[in-house]
């Protein structure tokens, strides 16, 4: 299960996001990190320090690209210039898969720079799946779509979010970046059972998992990525790993960023669940061999 065609048949473990405040520590200490996730847009530039840093990282670490501006669900044609720049970057990083969000964010050439939720309609399924296919065909690498956290629901919706996700990834034949924190945040804002969502995801398509911290307010919960992962999210992660098997996992910590070690140690907590899942996989494959023997 962990290595599948949606993550380029890789067996990546626990990674963290590559962030500016950690550059100095990484280059000085050369910590052992299984992989780094980069925000593609930070490196889709013509030159300068960002690309130099990226090349230094690529010399020593495995890197996976994660984007924030593809807007798979926008109703209008894809931006070809954006795609070309993205492809140039994928050649540089050799990312085994690439992820972006199941959302929309631009219309009529105006950009909101936000990951806006989609109405869960059949029209949106068709439009989004078509655009994901176009991106995947153009980039020639596996694409995984990430479920977003949301604060609004639409009258137009004809299905649940997890039904929508399943329809889209099936029609686009793409992978899923399962963000269990986003599921939790949305479940609090829209009053559904997050475990129902986790249990409904097609396990065979999960290429990667995100965990992160969030903030609870009186009337809603916000996806803030500014502190450690909370217990309910670890519980969902445990269930996801139970279903999917050991899968490339990344901790997102993007605001009030603490030391490199604190972020990395928080991410490594995922190993508590991954190690157990790896043992189960080993036992299962041994049993299978014995049956065949």
């Amino acid at each position: 299960m962990p290595a599948n065609r949606f993550n380029g048949f890789t067996d990546y473990g626990v990674g963290i996001g590559l962030r500016v405040p950690h550059y100095e520590h990484i280059f000085a200490e050369k910590p052992v990190v299984d992989w780094f996730e980069i925000i593609s847009e930070n490196y889709m530039v013509d030159g300068g320090r960002a690309l130099k840093v990226l090349d230094q990282i690529l010399d020593q670490y495995r890197v996976v690209q994660h984007g924030v501006s593809m807007y798979f669900g926008s109703a209008q044609p894809l931006n070809r210039e954006h795609l070309k720049r993205l492809k140039t970057l994928t050649k540089r990083t050799k990312t085994p898969w690439l992820s972006d969000h199941l959302c929309w964010g631009s219309v009529d050439g105006r950009y909101t720079h936000d990951l806006l939720p989609l109405p869960y309609t059949w029209e949106a399924v068709e439009t989004t799946a078509l655009r994901i296919r176009e991106v995947q065909d153009f980039l020639e690498i596996p694409v995984a779509v990430e479920n977003v956290s949301s604060y609004a629901e639409f009258h137009e919706s004809e299905m649940t979010e997890w039904e929508f996700l399943n329809e889209v990834v099936h029609r686009a034949d793409c992978g899923i970046l399962l963000d269990v924190n986003n599921i939790y945040v949305s479940s609090q804002n829209h009053s559904f059972d997050p475990m129902v969502y986790v249990n409904a995801v097609p396990a065979e398509r999960v290429a990667q998992i995100h965990v992160a911290g969030h903030s609870k307010f009186e009337k809603y919960t916000l996806d803030t990525h500014d502190h450690p992962v909370l217990d309910p999210v670890w519980k969902m992660y445990a269930r996801a790993i139970e279903r999917v098997g050991p899968t490339a996992t990344l901790l997102e910590w993007d605001d009030s960023i603490p030391s490199f070690d604190e972020v990395h140690n928080e991410a490594l907590k995922a190993n508590r669940y991954l190690v157990g899942a790896e043992a189960s996989v080993a036992i299962a494959s041994q049993e299978l061999e014995e049956v065949h023997a």
Binding site: I39, A212, D223, H225, D226, D254
Partner: peptide, 12 residues
């Protein structure tokens, strides 16, 4: 002024 980058979709 500390250097920053585009980090994510997180609300901040």
């Amino acid at each position: 002024t500390p250097e920053t980058d585009i980090v994510s979709n997180a609300v901040s």
